[in-house]
């Protein structure tokens, strides 16, 4: 087995020489997770707003369920989605199993509770006067909702970053419903798991570096944006 230093060197070479297989895995990972976020974020944030501001029957039950789902293991989500999409499942006729769409569904199930819980907390912490001021100045309720969203944008951005961080790194759901098919459903976490099991650590470390860099960039960007949120005269 190569030493850790040699393996890391090989990983960096793979990364910076533009290894097509490696970059294809990175592209699939981002494509799937960004689409999952794109579909999940608007729905989750509007629902979070309604839970905070609306009179929804059973609101407390919904909030409790969402908080419980925060701790759900990705592999359990994968199993559930698998059962729904498998040939004998209720959605089997759609033939979505082992496709990117199945991976997106699994990742949406994982990120919606985070977006909902953190979004709801951000809306609850917002000053209710923002909502009333927007309405009295002529905003329709949906415009007033966007105004409140703008007022709590840093909290919502943190929710989005946290949710994206969860789904781009999850392996259980993607492995089960995606099938880890090369050039189609193999993403960064499933590739790391596979390469490690084969003893091919270079590609695993290279992909790990990508995930670490991503986490660093996202957190740095969030800190910069939130830093701008400091009120200055």
């Amino acid at each position: 087995m190569n030493t850790l230093a040699q393996t890391t060197e090989n990983a960096l070479i793979l990364l910076f020489t533009g290894d097509p297989e490696l970059w294809n895995i990175i592209a699939i990972s981002f494509s799937v997770s960004l689409r999952a976020m794109l579909f999940a974020t608007p729905v989750a944030l509007v629902l979070a707003f309604l839970l905070a501001y609306g009179r929804i029957p059973g609101r407390r039950i919904v909030i409790s369920i969402m908080h419980t789902l925060l701790a759900i293991p990705p592999v359990v989500v994968g199993l559930t989605v698998y059962l729904f999409l498998s040939r004998n499942g209720p959605l089997g006729d759609l033939r979505l199993l082992f496709t990117q769409t199945a991976m997106i569904i699994g990742q949406m199930v994982l990120c919606i509770p985070i977006l909902l819980a953190m979004g709801h907390a951000a809306f609850q912490g917002a000053d209710r006067r923002a909502w009333e001021t927007a309405l009295t100045l002529g905003a329709a309720p949906w415009r007033a909702m966007f105004t409140v969203m703008h007022e709590v944008r840093f909290g919502l951005l943190a929710a989005i970053v946290a949710a994206f961080g969860r789904i781009i790194t999850e392996v259980g759901s993607s492995m089960m419903v995606g099938g880890n098919i090369l050039h189609y459903t193999r993403n960064i976490p499933t590739a790391i798991a596979l390469e490690t099991s084969k003893g091919e650590f270079a590609q695993g470390i290279a992909l790990g570096i990508v995930l670490l860099l991503l986490a660093m960039i996202l957190n740095f960007a969030l800190t910069v944006v939130q830093g701008k949120g400091v009120i200055t005269a």
Binding site: A130, E132, T133, G138
Partner: peptide, 16 residues
């Protein structure tokens, strides 16, 4: 009412 009347809070809310 909303079209014709504007309400100002005790401490008016200022948008960020």
């Amino acid at each position: 009412c909303r079209r014709n009347v504007i309400y100002l809070h005790q401490q008016p809310y200022m948008f960020d």
